[in-house]
Simulated assay, not measured.
Amino acid sequence: MMRQTSPELPSLDPGITLLETDERMTGSLQSLVLDQLLLEQGSAIWVDAHGHGTTQPLTQITPSMRVLDRIHIARAFTPWQHQRLVQELTGELSDETAIAVLPALDWFYRSEDLPRGDDERMLSAVTERINELAERFEIPVLLTLQTDDTLTAPIHDIADQTIRCERTQFGPRFASEEYETLVYPLENGLVQTTLAYWKGILANRHPAVVDADVSPEVSANGAY
């Protein structure tokens, strides 16, 4: 085990943030949400798609199990259910909400069950609703996309910032127009961005809330 300076994570300001990652960056979305909750009081309202809000990654990453009580997840199983959940977010968001999370926003609207043209129409309505909610409640809204193409182009238009997370030999690198992760090389090895790696980052950033069984260290050579 090798101790290093705790890497910074990008701040999520009020407004819409679009997080872009590749498939190798497992846990980046969950880490940003947990970091926001550990920095701020309040809860996360999460409208899930494609299994991003499952219990396993969240419990593996969090440095404190208590913070998970503040994550409220609603799951849809069809595009119509997903659209309704987004439309009903007004009743869920409040002054106590620290962040709203909508991963894989386009996932349900690529269903073969949708009649032609309904994919664009329904996703457009969802996009407009999210933009309205972000302006009304002035909270961070974190989005991800399953696929970046013409269907999801309008989502880029409402994003106040886009953050790209990519894997490097030294660990995760976040970059946007106003933010860039510094590189944190270790002396004798590379860092593997596993769920345990994200857990180590959050434990270093928030030592006051770390559970007794969490090690506030980041490994070298991907070993824990």
Rank of each mutant, 00 (worst) to 15 (best):
Q36I: 00
T144C: 05
H156V: 10
A74P: 01
G42M: 00
M65S: 15
L151K: 10
S64C: 13
V126Q: 05
T144F: 00
W46N: 00
S64A: 13
L85K: 03
A104S: 15
W107Q: 14
G51Y: 01
A104Y: 01
S124G: 15
L68M: 12
I139C: 09
V67I: 14
A104D: 14
D35Q: 04
P57I: 13
V141H: 02
L38G: 09
S111Y: 09
E128L: 08
L89V: 12
G42T: 00
R136A: 13
L85Q: 11
A98M: 04
A159S: 11
G51D: 07
D118R: 02
R116N: 08
H156K: 15
E92W: 04
R75F: 01
L143C: 09
A76N: 07
L39D: 15
G53K: 07
I155C: 00
T144H: 01
V141E: 01
L142M: 06
P57G: 01
P140V: 02
S64I: 03
L68A: 07
I99S: 13
Q146R: 09
A159H: 03
R75P: 03
R116F: 07
T152N: 05
E132Y: 02
A134I: 01
E135Y: 08
R110Q: 14
I139M: 13
N131D: 12
R66V: 02
A104V: 08
T62C: 15
G42F: 00
D69A: 11
H82Y: 09
Q161N: 10
F108P: 07
A125N: 06
P103C: 07
R110P: 15
E128T: 01
S94Y: 06
E120R: 14
L145P: 14
R75S: 13
Q83C: 04
L114A: 09
P154H: 11
H52V: 15
F108G: 02
T59K: 07
P57V: 10
H52L: 08
R167H: 02
I139E: 07
L151E: 06
T150I: 13
E132S: 11
D95Y: 14
T90D: 12
E166Q: 08
R116L: 10
R116A: 06
A134G: 14
V86Y: 00
W107D: 12
I163L: 15
L34M: 10
T150F: 02
R167I: 00
L133T: 03
H156P: 10
T127W: 11
